[in-house]
Amino acid sequence: MNSMTVTADGVISSPATARADLDIREHEHVSHYQTIGEPFVDNAKMSARNVNVFYDDKQAIFDVSLDIGGNEVIAMIGPSGCGKSTFLRVLNRMNDIIPICRVQGDISLDGDNIYGSDQDTVLLRARVGMVFQKPNPFPKSIYENVAYGPRIHGLAHSKAEMDEIVETSLRRASLFDEVKDQLDKPGTGLSGGQQQRLCIARAIAVSPEVILMDEPCSALDPIATARIEELIDELKANYTIAIVTHSMQQAARVSERTAYFHLGKLIEVGDTKEIFTMPKHELTENYITGRFG
């Protein structure tokens, strides 16, 4: 299990990862490659097995197997172009939008294969929500932004129920007190940090089980980032969270487990503390100590 054959033509490189490219080349000669650490957990909410992702002929993810445990926060780190965002988007089939993208392997949510023929992306995405890199509220009112999901999935049967959902979601995203008097104002008028919390509120309004966050703080200032991190800490009581981040400090602060990706391969995974204090793989160590990234 977890064996991978690294082929020279399968390696994706970009100018940004030129130095990283040199580093992986040392491992190209290793025909068998094993992810270091323990990728599997007992109470897996989602599990990926031997996942390969291709964009046309280019392979972006190589044979990744990883579990995401229930009510845990797992951070995915790695240099640009390492496939961590691609892996995250595979988890709620956002890559279906890209026509040239092809996914191999098994990914399941509570044991059901999400790429199975009986699966519907509508229901899947209601259970596995997503928060994006750049805050992307709709150009609608704050209320309508949060009510969007519940409307689509028919979760509220009356105005009062909808009000309830909107308020709860905004409270959970710790935004309610700031916006309670301006729910009819456009969501695009909020500050960047507030917009991102609005997007989180929008995501949790449909009561997902898993929330995927794709670098949710990369467009925010440190104060707004701190608020989002606090929020993630609160949310993990109710949700399973997978977060992609460029900031190692953030990964260290918010997550329980950390997975290190490198050029499409899952190099190392383990408890966050261990990864950051005693990385086992040379690449992980190089990345964490800031030798490239």
Binding site: M94, I97, F132, K140, G149
Partner: peptide, 24 residues
């Protein structure tokens, strides 16, 4: 990002067009 936001909520393409793209 508008399309992604809507589709990521589990909206269908049709709903995304009617409720997000066309109003925008």
């Amino acid at each position: 990002s508008m399309r992604e936001a809507s589709l990521g909520m589990g909206a269908t393409m049709n709903e995304t067009i009617r409720k997000v793209l066309l109003p925008a």
